[in-house]
Design a protein around this nucleic acid. Structure first.
Length: 479
DNA sequence: TGCTGTTTCAG
DNA sequence: TGAAACAGC
């Protein structure tokens, strides 16, 4: 019997069967030439380590790949799970793996520098052997390059980007690809390979079955999104979608989120400040930061978008950094937030802004220290979103908060955790404090077991203003 | 999705 | 007296 043509889907950050364009295209091609579809995932622990990927995120990834294996098996697609090394060796791994009859590879494109290099190497290698590569731009809702100013430039400011994005969306909507039907034949003549290792199960609180994840997103769109505008800011309330870990590894696509939102919320997505519009806005931020990252590779090298802010000499006091990491700064909302991160691998977005502002503008520590720490702990750690968020908070980014926007951690705490419920949950030392006193528990004295404030906010904020205005003035003089 | 110090004005 | 508005950082 003749060897069938083989179509290989390479799963990376699109670990799903629904709305997977690469998988969909491979199916169509196999149907056309009477071939078969197979799939591969390559674990690259060394690269993940280099990128400071959190252990809990690595575990989520490995658990998800195992679940994907059985979901693909229902479609008669074998998923080969290889324990590789790093991005640089992926071409070698694939070369060693190439099955008999392979005619094409299908994958979703990624925009970080090393990921692009990896894909170029794989492209070159397969081209030598007359194997086609098909790359798909499905990581963003609107692919990079499709949302540009009238001059053809990449937007550097979010609001006009969003306006243009929404106009495109109004015009063309979003398309989702159906989950393929099981293929009639399957391919069993797989090469030998190093089997992927299991994770440490640290992410077990997060389900990984595709159906369950989809259901969570749908329930959010049905039941919670209408209250999102206000509820999303309260860390004590379960008012956010909680889909970020799944978007980060592609159990869900952002397109699926928008399509479902449209279905449930209808025209209210066009209504300013409706929950649907605000949640959609968050998804547009996700696109915005990815577009910016691709257009400005210096961001991947951890350079500040606003170059002059890299002239600031951050004191980088190691003891203060340690206090921040451990949640022992003496500022309850900051400490509760950091403990939530350390204990659960996730932090509420409002708290990400507060803790980031505090690290940079109260403790005077380089935002890159915080960026890396977040990556090393977050289950949803995504370079573009994390870097974008940090540069926004640190006032070094494109369309960032102005440098003089310095959060007062006590005011923020009073406003967004008014009863102190969130603080009490993560700081048992303060459990007895009243709603009034819990935000600043140091009067008349700091409770036993809780940290004294490591800095005085009203003093350090003035130093921040001076640090920034010095480099801004320098900039003006050069100009 | 800012804070702070100051001014203004109704009551 | 305190809410609201405002300007500057």
């Amino acid at each position: 019997m003749k060897t069938p043509s083989v179509h290989l889907v390479w799963f990376r950050h699109d670990l799903r069967c629904h709305d997977n364009e690469a998988l969909h295209a491979a199916f169509n091609a196999a149907a056309a030439d009477n071939g078969v579809v197979i799939a591969v995932f390559i674990a690259t622990a060394k690269s993940w380590q280099q990128h400071h990927m959190a252990a809990i995120r690595q575990d989520l990834l490995r658990r998800r790949v195992k679940a994907l294996e059985s979901e693909l098996a229902d479609l008669n697609i074998p998923l080969v799970m290889v324990e590789g090394v790093d991005y640089a060796s992926c071409a070698k791994t694939i070369a060693a793996f190439i099955p008999k009859g392979l005619v094409a590879l299908y994958a979703q494109r990624e925009y970080e520098v090393r990921e692009q290099q990896r894909d170029e190497q794989v492209s070159a290698l397969l081209q030598q052997q007359q194997i086609d590569c098909h790359w798909f731009d499905r990581l963003c809702i609107m692919p990079p390059g499709s949302v540009l100013t009238q001059q053809g430039d990449v937007y550097k400011v979010f609001t006009p980007f969003k306006r243009n994005w929404l106009a495109k969306y109004a015009e063309q909507g979003v398309h989702c690809f159906a989950k393929p039907k099981p293929q009639a034949r399957t391919f069993t003549d797989l090469p030998t390979f190093t089997v992927m290792q299991e994770g440490d199960n640290s992410s077990s609180a997060w389900p990984v079955a595709e159906a369950e994840v989809l259901q969570q997103m749908r329930l959010f769109c049905q039941q919670k999104v209408q209250d999102y505008t206000l509820q999303r800011d309260l860390p004590a309330v379960d008012g956010t979608s909680q889909v970020s870990p799944y978007l980060a590894i592609g159990v869900l696509s952002a397109q699926q989120c928008v399509a479902r939102l449209q279905l449930e919320a209808g025209a209210s997505i066009w209504q300013e400040k409706s929950g649907a519009a605000v949640w959609l806005s968050e998804l547009i931020w996700r696109d915005f930061y990815k577009h910016i990252m691709l257009a400005f590779p210096k961001l991947i090298k951890h350079k500040a978008f606003q170059a002059e802010t890299d002239l600031i000499q951050w004191p980088n006091n190691a003891a203060l950094f340690e206090a921040w990491c451990q949640g022992k700064t003496g500022y309850p909302i900051v400490d509760a937030a950091m403990r939530q991160l350390n204990q659960t691998g996730w932090m509420h977005n409002r708290l990400r802004m507060i803790t980031a502002s505090f690290l940079v503008k109260d403790l005077h520590i380089d935002w890159r220290w915080g960026e890396q720490y977040f990556m090393s702990k977050l289950i949803d750690g995504d370079f573009a979103a994390n870097n974008g968020g940090w540069q926004w908070a640190a006032s070094t980014g494109t369309d960032a908060a102005p440098y003089f926007r310095i959060f007062n951690p006590v005011t923020q705490s009073q406003r967004f955790d008014a009863n102190g419920d969130f603080i009490r949950k993560f700081i048992p030392e303060l459990a007895a404090k009243s709603a009034k006193d819990i935000h600043w528990p140091h009067k008349p004295i700091t409770p036993k077991g809780y940290a004294a404030p490591v800095v005085a906010h009203d003093q350090v904020r003035k130093i921040t203003l001076a640090l920034f205005s010095a480099v801004k003035n320098q900039e003006n003089q050069h100009a």
